[in-house]
Design a protein around this nucleic acid. Structure first.
Length: 853
RNA sequence: GCCCCGGUAGCCCAAUCGGCAGAGGCAGACGACUUAAAAUCGUCCCAGUCAGGGUUCGAGUCCCUGCCGGGGCACCA
């Protein structure tokens, strides 16, 4: 309260975040300071992109984190004088809209676009510095038209094709899934249902043709993408190098080719195994006895019923049936019985393997179960120069060597050693034997060097309504006829009157008026499936560069100006799916001549999750923090600041461990500084408080590096430190009229513009500047203020600090050592000791190493 | 089973090249202001860096082994 005889200090006004939010959001809405207009602007450019959201309900705390952090980067580059493109849109096709529509009986459009409106309102409230003129929705025909264009381009190149094969089927959503959408436990990442296998004719993108490039180009991203994501992608692509070997089959005209990473053990092959669900197995068993055919049919049925979880349980007993057929080992002419067993996968390698039970655990388990021979061909007790020995010298001396008898021990011999029982390979080490046997096979024409991948082609057909229609038509013979480019888009018919409930075939097929078309006098039927929505998001970053262009997918000139994306920000849950697909499509567009780069995202930042009490937030667990409630309680700026300050961005934030209240108090404290400054804008800072000025310029010099290395938490801490120091300077001597106080307040406003935009704008205005602080420039640090007059040198005796000396930074080693030897504490510490060695690193350290006399 | 990341104060986290373990915050204690409280301002408290070994004049930092936590891949030949 202000008494009658005291002046009413305006600087005692309180920090009212609601008033600031109302004031500045209106200003931004009116002035649109973050819109990038194509045209002359010779500033350097940065393209900062946040992963666009899926419009399911309102924004949540995860969104709050990603958009806070992405905005720090965007706003940082603006302060550094860059023209920054920071667009936003919606990934608005997909199953949740359709499921909600079914549940509530409304059109998916209605649900989708009303959610988008809600999220857009929330984003504006959250003050993300987006360019609102470039908003796109993937569910707009203006967007998905170009999905269809992309599909047709890939079709022309043979990169989009149809094939009949076993696919992952989600029995709840009643649609197929890509391999990437099946979780490790065999359930759907959408519905959570156990995925089953179904044989269907579906569209694929030939991503495996790009496997080598997708793998090798990851090296370019080293240090720019999180190591974890690079590792996950490498793992997923799963290239293995080895050999293909052709085995003649008795009673079959063409040989069977197998893939192996261990061709060195070819002489140890004692049987062959084929996948039971492969065409090869079915064909081979045809020549067998009726009994064997029956056994095989039963076995096939059992394996197909087995759930993914059972199949993937490596500890379960090996099963299989003998097919009564024989293969001939090309290197020694031996007759190998052929078995069908489900530990061999039909869609990896060639679906057939040579089994070397002595040196492969799976084969050994199988051989022991079915009493098949085991032959050791690599003496793992023989030492190899240069390799880490399985056998120690001690073992050699005592003769206490591990047994070379896998049949008895049950342990396959996996180490290195020297080849035995292998004819021309005898005596060679494993690696030399691999090289040699491939040469021999190539000479004989029965084998060759080969690579294989875990990655499979990308299945893009979905039997659902709310997606991009596949622009293909079929004639009566089922031949594919692409929709001509000039007839795009193939728009989705209205959902009205269509039964959208999952029933295993696309609802679009039931829209007869839509599905039946006359094309060049022919009656044709449209493909009724829609595309996987990951197609939509695999190139959207290009569409942002010319979002309203209705003549092309993207303007190549704008792409040249802006792309690739300089900074991509989003969750690690997209480490494989979205990022791999976007990388693939970028390489396709490169090959088609549309873009001049091969990687879409130069730098990637994965933010962690926002959790509560150590666990992922979930409504069922009741541990949910609601975005809008947090904003109501603490204000937008405090929530954003908390996101940045909580810790390294890639770490999870436990909302219990952080303090939005603390952030709010700090912002109020910073904001009050701007009200206390009594000097006018534009004053000379030169004769301000020297200590504070040094601090300010150290701050100016350090913060850019912190932001660029994503140490947002440290940058915030440094801002708090500067505010504290300024507070002290005002209270303890210099007063609010000191020029350095104004300089500090202005720098704090600039720094806060990255984290707390409303507070920063208001500080900037209270300091007498025109808005917007977001468009101001980060000042260059004055280097003369960065030079320290003195530094502290430490003196160690036997590793323990004995003295701290204040010295000039330019002090010579000799002078420093002399000073150290003159120190009382050091003299005392050296008493009775002989100095063995002295290490001097001027001006930081003098280190004495001694021994007692 | 294989691969990757991490472990610093009661809690969240800092610590350029190997050179004084502590920047910042939360929680806590105390004080100033106040009739009182809130708010504000100030002062203070707390670890020797998961354990063991190694390299080094010197290790939170580099190397090895182990423990704990998180993540990825996994019957992939």
């Amino acid at each position: 309260m202000t008494s009658a005889n005291e002046p009413d200090f305006p600087d005692k006004a309180s920090y009212d975040f609601s008033a600031l939010e109302a004031k500045w959001s209106a200003w931004w809405e009116e002035h649109q300071p973050f819109t990038v207009v194509p045209g002359d602007d010779d500033r350097p450019r940065k393209y900062v992109l946040d992963m666009f959201p899926y419009p399911s309900g309102d924004l949540h705390m995860g969104h709050a984190e990603v958009y806070a952090l992405g905005d720090v980067v965007a706003r940082y580059w603006r302060l550094q004088g860059f023209q920054v493109l920071h667009p936003i849109g919606w990934d608005s096709f997909g199953l949740p809209a359709e499921n909600a529509a079914i549940k509530r009986g409304v059109d998916p459009r209605e649900w989708t676009y009303s959610n988008i409106d809600q999220q857009k309102t929330s984003m504006k409230r959250y003050a993300a510095s987006f360019d609102w003129s470039r908003v796109l929705h993937t569910s707009d025909p203006e967007y998905y038209r170009w999905n269809q264009w992309l599909f047709l381009k890939m079709y022309e190149k043979g990169l989009a094709y149809r094939k009949d094969s076993w696919v992952n089927w989600d029995p709840v959503d009643q649609t197929v899934l890509a391999n990437e959408q099946v979780l490790p436990d065999g359930t759907s990442d959408r519905s959570g249902a156990m995925v089953v296998k179904k044989k269907l004719t579906q569209w694929y993108f030939a991503i495996t043709q790009y496997a080598d490039r997708l793998l090798d180009d990851l090296n370019q991203l080293e240090g720019r993408w999180p190591a974890k994501v690079l590792a996950m992608q490498r793992n997923w692509i799963g290239r293995s190098e080895g050999a293909e070997v052709d085995f003649v089959i008795e009673g079959r005209s063409t040989p069977v080719t197998i893939f192996t990473t261990r061709p060195d053990t070819l002489f140890g092959a004692t049987f062959m195994v084929v996948a039971p669900d492969s065409d090869l197995a079915a064909e081979l068993v045809e020549g067998a006895s009726a009994k064997a055919q029956k056994a095989f049919a039963d076995y096939l049925e059992t394996t197909q019923k087995a759930s993914e979880i059972d199949r993937q349980d490596a500890s379960r007993d090996k099963t299989g049936v003998f097919l009564e057929r024989y293969a001939i080992n090309p290197v020694n002419g031996e007759r190998l019985p052929i078995w069908a067993a489900d530990y061999v996968l039909a869609d990896y390698g060639t679906g057939a393997i040579m089994a070397v039970p002595a040196h492969d655990q799976r084969d050994l388990d199988f051989a022991r179960k079915f009493d098949l021979p085991v032959r050791v061909v690599l003496d793992t007790n023989a030492p190899i120069t240069g390799a880490i020995p399985v056998v120690t010298e001690e073992m050699l001396e005592t003769g206490d060597l591990p047994p070379l008898d896998p049949l008895a021990t049950g342990e396959a011999l996996s180490g290195d050693g020297r080849m035995i029982n292998s004819g021309p390979l005898d005596g060679l080490s494993k690696n030399n034997a691999i090289t040699r046997v491939i040469e021999l096979l190539e000479d004989a024409g029965t084998g060759r060097l080969a690579k294989t991948y875990r990655l499979r082609d990308w299945l893009i057909s979905r039997q659902r309504y709310w997606g991009t229609p596949i622009p293909i038509m079929y004639d009566e013979q089922g031949r594919e006829i692409p929709v001509p480019m000039d007839q795009l888009p193939v728009t989705l018919p209205s959902g009205e009157g269509l039964d959208l409930r999952p029933k295993g075939s696309s609802p679009l097929g039931a829209a007869k008026d839509w599905a039946k078309v006359t094309h060049e006098g022919q009656e044709l039927t449209r493909d009724a499936d829609t595309m996987d929505t990951f197609v939509d998001s695999s190139w959207y970053f290009l569409r942002f560069l010319s979002p309203h262009d209705d003549t092309q997918a993207f303007d190549v000139n704008e792409v040249e100006k802006w792309a690739p994306v300089d900074q991509y920000v989003g969750g690690v849950e997209h480490a494989i799916l979205h990022l791999l697909y976007a990388r693939f499509i970028t390489k396709v567009l490169f090959d088609l001549g549309y873009v001049s780069f091969t990687e879409p995202f130069t730098s990637l930042l994965n933010q962690g999750m926002v959790i509560l009490d150590g666990a992922k937030m979930s409504k069922s667990k009741g541990n949910v923090v609601y975005f809008s409630e947090e904003l109501d309680s603490y204000g937008v700026d405090a929530v954003r600041l908390t996101m940045a300050f909580a810790g390294p961005p890639e770490d999870d934030i436990d909302w219990r461990d952080v303090s939005p209240v603390g952030s709010q108090k700090f912002l109020a404290r910073a904001w009050r500084l701007s009200g206390e400054v009594t000097t006018q804008p534009g004053i000379e800072f030169g004769n301000g408080d020297a200590t504070l000025r040094k601090h300010i310029h150290r701050f100016l010099a350090d913060v850019p590096g912190l932001i660029e290395s994503f140490k947002f938490n440290v940058a915030v801490a440094r801002t708090m430190e500067l505010v504290n120091h300024t507070r002290k300077t005002i209270d303890q001597g210099a007063g609010p009229g000191d020029p350095a106080v104004r300089e500090a307040a202005e720098v704090v406003a600039l720094a806060l513009s990255m984290f707390a935009p409303h507070t920063a704008e208001d500080m900037w205005e209270r300091l007498g500047h025109e808005p917007s602080v977001a468009l101001a420039r980060w000042p260059e640090a004055d280097h003369s203020l960065l030079v320290e007059d003195t530094v502290i040198a430490i003196v160690q005796v036997d590793g323990k600090v004995k003295e701290r000396l204040e010295v000039a930074p330019a002090i010579t080693g000799e002078a420093l050592e002399t000073l150290a030897r003159e120190s009382e504490a050091v003299i005392h510490a050296l008493e009775g000791k002989t100095i063995l060695n002295v290490v001097v690193r001027a001006p930081k350290v003098v280190s004495f190493q001694t021994q007692p006399q």
